[in-house]
Amino acid sequence: MAVELSSEEVLHVARLARLELGAEESTSAARQLSAILEHVDAVRALDLGGIPPTSHPLELVNVLRDDVERPCLDRADVLAGAPAVEDGRFAVPRILGEAP
């Protein structure tokens, strides 16, 4: 079961991942991603019905910290690396939509 990503699918993924991608780039990206997916496709073919997924190598549970304050960063440090600052806040260009 070969996997063939279309450049439309790639553009969709690029939008999801917030990566600007030109039309030509999307074609080559589609080719590369398809090649990788084809290689890992063996995984899809494995019959692993009875095997539960592992999301984490550790079997720890309930790791909790006490509700005790710790020092915050100085605001100068918080804003030091910011590309744009206004009025003690991080400035961004206009936002086109409400948060989902």
Binding site: V40, V43, R44, L46, L48, I51, P52, P53, T54, S55
Partner: peptide, 8 residues
């Protein structure tokens, strides 16, 4: 499926 391979 990859997570199952991880179990495997």
């Amino acid at each position: 499926q990859a997570q199952r391979v991880r179990t495997l």
